[in-house]
Design a binder for these strands. Sequence first.
DNA 1: TTGTAGGCGTTATCAA
DNA 2: TTGATAACGCCTACAA
Lengths: 354, 354
Amino acid sequence: MHDRPPTLADVAQRAGVSYATADRVVNGRGGVSDKTVRSVHAAVSALGYVRNVAAANLSQQRVYRFVAVLPDGSNAFFARMRALFEAAATRMIADRVNLSVETVAAFDPAALRERLETLAKQGVDGIAVVGSDDASTINTIAALRDSGIAVMTLVSEVPGSDRAAYVGIDNTVAGGTVGRLLVLAHGGRSGRILPVVGALTARDHADRLQGLREVVAPEITIAPVIEGRDRQDLVEAGVTQALRADPSITAIYSAGAGNVGLIRVLQALPATTRRPIVVLHELVAHSRRALEAGLIDIIIDQRPEEEVARVIDGLRLLADRRAPILTDPIVPTIYVRENLPPEPQITITGNPQR
Amino acid sequence: MHDRPPTLADVAQRAGVSYATADRVVNGRGGVSDKTVRSVHAAVSALGYVRNVAAANLSQQRVYRFVAVLPDGSNAFFARMRALFEAAATRMIADRVNLSVETVAAFDPAALRERLETLAKQGVDGIAVVGSDDASTINTIAALRDSGIAVMTLVSEVPGSDRAAYVGIDNTVAGGTVGRLLVLAHGGRSGRILPVVGALTARDHADRLQGLREVVAPEITIAPVIEGRDRQDLVEAGVTQALRADPSITAIYSAGAGNVGLIRVLQALPATTRRPIVVLHELVAHSRRALEAGLIDIIIDQRPEEEVARVIDGLRLLADRRAPILTDPIVPTIYVRENLPPEPQITITGNPQR
DNA sequence: TTGTAGGCGTTATCAA
DNA sequence: TTGATAACGCCTACAA
């Protein structure tokens, strides 16, 4: 009843060959006669042999070295993602995976390329990088891949690149989701949405807008887009002006960053007027407070926790050259005031007993 | 630059003691002089030693044996959860964890107790069980715990029990979330919600209703509750009758199962009338189709994928007697038509290369 | 209170 | 084409 799982030695014995031969067959190292191969395979499936990864890793003294490359700057979202990576890193050292987080100038393909090439020279096993849609980055990723390094893109896709996988949301889906919620919130009445983005040239922002448009038309119209460059001050000025200029606005959708500026506008709104419905992206400290305070209605979040977990999983699978990794897009999640998760804690890792 | 992580042997050498002594200190086995303890600790932190779990597991020939106990019946949600557990099980045999899924008569505390006691005798390391709120179950869980078996409750909490952790949503939160979305969807207008539950005595359903009530009052009123016993036919009959009796109903919230019946009612609704806003729980095949078809508006889901992952993680931590496991509640997720995840695939596990 | 050494299942090297 | 065997890092029985 309680027999231990079969080992390769069991397989070898059953197949009537030496341990080494069984190993050759199981791990496809070649140089084994067909007949022997067949008998080993038969033994494997008869016994239900499964390679013991713990033992394998031990014998190989495998130490995975992974790096996550994030854009620098004071962006709250990436700060959170960074914290998540760091927490994961400390949890994983017991599993012999060495994960580090590095920062590189945002929107600077040359800097990114240089950093990636340096990492390649240092011999990392895998890299997760926040994508950007330019030729330099595409080429760099291809080069890394050719040199056998697993590359995954994170948060933002690098369209033409042959990265091993993309982990992030589908921005068109995100925009569409927002659109659907706004349609619901308008309850059949007409309305006018004020869209705020960082820049219309930013692929992800444009996709979100596109998703929105497809869903809300034709009942609800869309006001001229504000490009806030992801900067609080510009967002604040732009939204203030737009609201003043167009009193028919019933909703605001902020698809980019700089939302501190938007929140300031909302705070300053006269209490007499019914404020527009407000939806914005990413659950971070300030957006959370705004939702709790009733200044905004919905946060749509890409769940960086899950993204980080998937990236790490994926890098490990790639490093082990296991089968094609699953690549379902992340489903953007909706937060309202009532289902906010517990505030993220600063995690202090204790020393495991035993 | 590329040195391998320090081993206990390194620690021992640096502390000037034997391997066994270092081991005694690091694993707190006692019987070591204070002075020695200190010097070993010093060496540990000087070198940054971290126990290699792969090696530890190997040497112990540890095989985790976990069981998930789910209620039987044709419930689509539990069918999905079962599939998720089974998929996880096959993925984990390479890690020497033996996870099996068992089924026990729903709503039958005696049967559950018997099953759990049998498992205890067979010497499992951990059990995940869908809770129920009765004395027998509470006692059984206590007994299991005393005999050193890790018990986690899943989906539904067992209030007074000393289970190691509960993995599931907070149902009051779920109800509140639905309430908020319905308030939004009413856009300041009054309305009347028809609630459908399995039974008011079912703790989770009652909690959901409670969460809803707290949020929607006072603008939106709540019609008399339909108790559908989670059965399609009863739900269908109840909802049909209620809609006929009360034309002022603007929304339906189904907090329980039997939603196939509800969907039939919606399909039969005359196309001329504007149908009520409909929210229900759990993303399964039929609810998904209904959302895609525009028969319902929102699905609130407890993400069984995440629940399963957390349970397995938790059981492993408990079996290893590692620190108190994190016990954040699962955040219920909102689906609209646009952010439905890809249809779950039947996963066929390939043989890992190497 | 401290130390020695065999074994866990795999990988990889060397020899036949 | 096949076989034997020394690591890998940790746990533990046993000895001192």
